[in-house]
Design a binder for these strands. Structure first.
Length: 649
RNA sequence: GCCGCCGUAGCUCAGCCCGGCAGAGCGGCAGUUUCGUAAACUGCAGGUCGGGGGAUCGAAGCCCUCCGGCGGCUCCA
């Protein structure tokens, strides 16, 4: 549209059901094209066609339920409009009756009454108000200003009686009313209410808990300190693990052989441990019917962030987690209380979320990601609480085994409703004691999400940003929504509670956390490295010169079940060492005349920045001890360094 | 999605303000060197200057637009 640079809109719901769509515009032009209602009021020619510059345009409808209290509705709407007008800094309002916003329109009489009193209310509050005619078909043109408001922002080009309307999910409506309070729960079980003023958090002594403070700040404060690009982005490219793929959609990455190796190992350890804990692994479709009733009401709870796919005969959306797939399986299962708790598991490769463009960040926030998801059906709250802690231990051990320091590397975010807290205080406090350090609690006045309690283990990175990895939730809604039930001990049918565990969080995010950890080490002057079991090369054998090449090749054969490779290039020793160090190889074995004569190895150990003499068997034992019990994969690239292509330079 | 910054060889970057032959180092290739713990030496090849459009005698450079990346906002089931 001519003159329109960017279009912004935001829908806000008044406490009544009146709907208002706000547009802060450079101008709005409209023209009546005919009566929509037989008995519409006559309007003077001056109001049939008009142009208003620089104003807050309020597209507005009254809903059926407003009919009874038009005065209250008008007042609430006036307050809302006043609020938004203050935000965008304008005193000029256009009231634009727009029936298309409504799915259950109020009758014209009460609606008109409401609009009249809204108009006079706004005038009384000191606004310059333009009311466009009620009961007429109108065409209009708008040029909306560009400033950031909400995720509902989108470009819309509206012309004659445009019927396109903002899709506003139930979630957005409910969230507007949601009140939450923040606390720190310490390991003694004391709750410390937090307040934030001018970016400073008060209410708890954070000494010795610097990262928890950063996490609390990240969650509670709205503006964040200006920082540079996340360390892991450069690292993932330099180490030739992962890269952007301009040929795809943003947030859909490419994994090079070494990145695929690491990802595959993580996928394997997570899946293995979850099967060992007792979950049954399943596989479900990646896309689902938009019109499926249960899915529809579930999806409606969240802002429209789906990838949409046109199948030969219907519109489908790509899954954003394994939830539906497993719920749809569960609803057809015949279940007895004797079989509970009962966990199903799937590693979703991929889950899709069409995150806003500016929200994407390297491996931290993606549009396509690999999510392990394990839902367990539980008979009642007591079983759910007990079983959540069983899974807690599984996840704790898993994360420690992967290479995280537990609990040092994470900060707990616990989200809980006030009523759950009141009834199950002991459980939450026991959780804090088990965790072993204070945790951040967000308490909601009422249950808005489908869960009554959720915890996340958040990793705080070098830019003080937090990302949730492990998470588990107690879902009180979806069993009913999806028709999942079991036979109880009295022979009755009941809906179970559902636990939603992601034991590690998205696999990409685990990689992000390890790279960020390494980046932080490098910043402190310590050698950055990956956990040895994930290192693409665990041992690099480096002959001093070509004379030792055959001997070196023999050594490689003597380290089975270890990723060992050989620098067979013609470069100088110093250069070969440099290459290995740049690849973060944890053990570099240099073989020259001396080693061949003595039979010992000279091993450059990255973790300790030392060179140590040891035998090849000692080295093998040492590495096997470090990677014991974890999955193993062979080298992702040819064993000879000279045979490897460059993926990134 | 909005605001700001950025995009030049496989990689890291100079050139852009003030329009006039497309540059360096690393990497690659060929040759020389056979070397003791983070970059040997010589030579050669390598470019739609992110894509498209515009103004100009002339564009990597100026204008518009699209794509991609980073930071912020917003968001994160």
């Amino acid at each position: 549209m001519r003159g329109a640079r960017s279009l912004i809109s935001r829908s806000i719901y008044a406490p009544t059901n009146m709907r208002v769509l706000f547009l802060h515009v450079d101008f709005l032009e409209y023209e009546t094209t005919g009566k929509a209602l037989k008995d519409a009021e006559d309007v003077p020619p001056s109001k049939r066609k008009a142009r208003v510059d620089e104003a807050l345009v309020c597209f507005i409808t009254a809903e059926k339920r407003d009919e009874k209290h038009p005065e209250a509705g008008a007042k609430a709407a006036a307050t809302n409009i006043e609020e938004v007008a203050a935000q965008v800094g304008t005193k000029r309002i256009v009231l634009y009756p727009y029936a298309h916003l409504s799915s259950s329109l109020a009758a014209p009489g009460p609606a008109q009454e409401l609009f009249h009193s809204l108009e006079s209310g706004l005038v009384a509050r000191g606004f310059e108000v333009h009311a466009s005619p009620f009961g007429y078909y109108k065409s209009f043109r708008v040029a909306v200003k560009g400033h950031p408001l909400s995720e509902l922002s989108r470009e819309i080009v509206v012309d004659v009686a445009a019927t396109e309307r903002e899709e506003v999910s139930e979630a957005v409506k409910a969230e507007a009313k949601l009140v939450s309070h923040w606390h720190i729960l310490d390991t003694k079980g004391d709750l410390h209410p937090l307040t934030i003023k001018d970016g400073t958090i008060a209410g708890f002594d954070f000494r010795g808990q610097a990262r928890l403070e950063k996490f609390a700040h990240y969650e509670m404060a709205k503006s964040r300190a200006v920082k540079e690009e996340p360390a892991h982005v450069r690292l993932m490219q330099e180490l030739e693990l992962v890269d952007y793929e301009p040929g795809s959609d943003p947030g859909n990455l490419r994994f090079y052989p070494k990145g695929r190796l690491i990802k595959a190992l993580l996928e394997e350890i997570v899946s293995r441990r979850i099967r060992e804990y007792g979950a049954m692994e399943v596989e479900s479709p990646v896309m689902y019917d938009f019109e499926h009733p249960a899915l529809k009401s579930y999806v409606d709870r969240f802002p429209a962030r789906q990838y949409v796919v046109q199948t030969p005969n219907k519109k489908a959306f790509l899954r954003f987690s394994a939830c539906f797939g497993q719920f749809l399986i569960m609803k057809d299962m015949v279940l007895s209380y004797k079989q509970l708790p009962l966990p199903l598991y799937e590693l979703t490769r991929y889950s899709f979320r069409a995150e806003q463009r500016g929200e994407l960040a390297g491996l931290r926030r993606l549009r396509a990601f690999t999510m392990p998801d394990c839902h367990a059906l539980c008979a009642d709250v007591e079983q759910a609480k007990a079983h959540m802690m069983v899974r807690f231990e599984v996840a704790w051990k898993l994360m420690a085994e992967c290479g995280f320091s537990m609990p040092d590397d994470f900060e707990v975010g616990m989200r809980v409703t006030e009523s759950f807290w009141r009834q199950h205080k002991d459980f939450v406090i026991a959780y804090a004691k088990r965790w072993g350090k204070p945790l951040l609690v967000e308490m909601w006045s009422e249950q808005f999400f489908y869960y009554a309690l959720k915890y996340e283990w958040n990793f705080v990175d070098g830019n003080d940003k937090a990302a949730a990895l492990t998470t588990d939730q107690i879902d009180t809604e979806n069993a009913k929504r999806f028709g999942i039930s079991f036979t109880d001990d009295k022979g009755g049918q009941r809906h179970p509670l559902i636990l939603h565990l992601s034991p590690s969080g998205a696999i990409e995010r685990v990689m992000y956390a390890f790279l960020e950890k390494a980046g932080a080490d490098a910043k402190r002057g310590e050698p950055p490295m990956l956990p040895v079991w994930l290192a693409p090369t665990q041992v690099r054998v480096v002959p001093v010169s070509a004379d030792q090449l055959d001997y070196a090749r023999g050594l490689v054969e003597r380290l089975p079940e270890v990723r060992v490779d050989l620098d067979d290039t013609n470069d100088t020793l110093a250069k070969k060492i440099r290459r290995a160090e740049k690849e973060w190889v944890p053990y570099i074995v240099v073989v020259g005349k001396k080693e061949i004569e003595s039979g010992a190895l000279n091993v450059r150990v990255r973790a300790t920045k030392t060179q140590t003499e040891m035998s090849i068997d000692e080295l093998g034992r040492r590495i096997r001890a470090e990677i014991a019990g974890r999955p193993f994969r062979a080298l992702a690239e040819p064993q000879d360094v000279s045979a490897r292509p460059i993926f990134h330079g």
